[in-house]
């Protein structure tokens, strides 16, 4: 009898660490805050992640998505960093380019990019620039030498549609006439359809994911002029990359650094972060669960069905990058402020 009791006690002791780990999430609900409204791409990814992340955490907590739109997801980032409780029950999906604001020293930033607990990203994407085919700009060289610059659409300063053409101006000397003020992607594409504008810069993922662009490729309505990755995308073997062009045009060192800083946002992808104050154990659990989710077969199948590209980035990689990116020499910061139109 005594022996059994001892054995049970011993077993209980043995199992305790695992038990405690499960306890953290047992019967709990984890909230994913997204910095955009329901129906956006970030929100779609978050809802998919929320369906699968739970089963990879000890205790299988349930997940819900809550939208906290505003300030280009700055409100959500500030909330996740400083307002939400660091109990591991709140994580956030935020805009990958928010660190621009931190570098530019904007007062509204109430987070330190490098101190988030980086969980990973389901997707990363380089950028491309599309151009209507019925224009005289057949290659990026035509844009450099054109007397009349083509009109590119953008929502506002500081967004991809604006800073990418600007970066091309700074680094390889192209000229674009950027039309600002469109409310969003759909309106920009319609503007190009009716020839109010001719070009737009956005992610490679969007170019291959959007149905509209599939039709455009089929009809030869628009073509790509440049991609921004260090390596050419395997789907775009013939499209020159910004890095090749920077070699070709002997872009200076400072301009290259500028490109590096700006384009790092591509690597962050659609990042998921946890508040800085959570316990290291929880941070590890979340990060591992995130990585497992990205390899989860059901998750991948559903992503495919929803036409969401999955090119995961690991939390460790993002953490390293985040630490490095927030330290920049003042010249680069100054150039970046100018680029962002601030």
């Amino acid at each position: 009898m005594k022996a059994i009791l001892v054995a049970v006690l011993f077993l209980a002791l043995l199992l305790r660490p695992g038990q405690a780990e499960a306890d953290v999430y047992q019967g709990k609900t984890v909230t994913i805050i997204t910095g955009t409204s329901a129906g956006s791409t970030y929100d779609t990814y978050a809802r998919l992640v929320a369906q699968h992340l739970g089963k990879h955490l000890p205790g299988s907590p349930s997940f819900v998505v809550q939208n906290m739109p505003g300030g280009g997801s700055m409100i959500a980032a500030n909330f996740a960093y400083g307002v939400s409780k660091p109990d591991g029950l709140t994580i956030a999906s935020i805009n990958p380019a928010l660190y621009f604001n931190q570098l530019a020293g904007r007062k509204e930033v109430q987070f330190d990019w490098s101190k988030f607990n980086w969980l990973g990203s389901p997707d990363r994407s380089d950028h491309v620039l599309y151009m209507r085919t019925d224009t005289p700009y057949k290659t990026i060289h035509d844009v450099r030498t054109a007397a009349n610059p083509p009109k590119c659409t953008a929502t506002a300063t500081g967004t991809t549609g604006h800073y990418l053409p600007k970066l091309l101006e700074e680094t390889i000397g192209t000229k674009f006439h950027i039309i600002l003020g469109y409310p969003g992607g759909p309106e920009m594409d319609l503007a190009v359809e009716r020839n109010e504008a001719q070009c737009r810069a956005f992610t490679t993922t969007a170019w291959f994911g959007g149905e509209l662009y599939r039709n455009w490729r089929k009809d030869g309505f628009a073509r790509l002029l440049i991609q921004t990755g260090r390596k050419r995308d395997e789907r775009l073997p013939d499209l020159p990359s910004l890095y090749e062009l920077m070699d070709q045009y002997r872009t200076g060192e400072n301009d290259r650094r500028l490109a590096d800083v700006v384009l790092a946002s591509n690597i962050f992808g659609r990042p998921y972060v946890a508040p800085p104050g959570i316990s290291p154990d929880q941070a590890r659990m979340l990060r591992e669960a995130f990585a497992k989710t990205m390899a989860d077969r059901e998750f991948l199948a559903e992503a495919k069905r929803r036409n969401l590209e999955i090119k995961p980035a690991a939390g460790e990689e993002l953490e390293k990058l985040a630490t490095a990116i927030v330290v920049q020499p003042p010249e680069v910061v100054a150039r970046m402020k100018k680029l962002l139109g601030k």
């Binding site: 129906g39 599939r214 929803r306």
Partner: peptide
């Protein structure tokens, strides 16, 4: 606009657009 171009013109239609994809349907022509 959603049906004709595959461009959702409001938040609700953006979510419906997601439903198209889940159903394996290409909104557009």
């Amino acid at each position: 606009t959603t049906v004709a171009f595959g461009i959702p013109s409001s938040v609700s239609t953006a979510i419906l657009f997601g439903a198209f994809l889940i159903q394996g349907i290409v909104p557009g022509p």
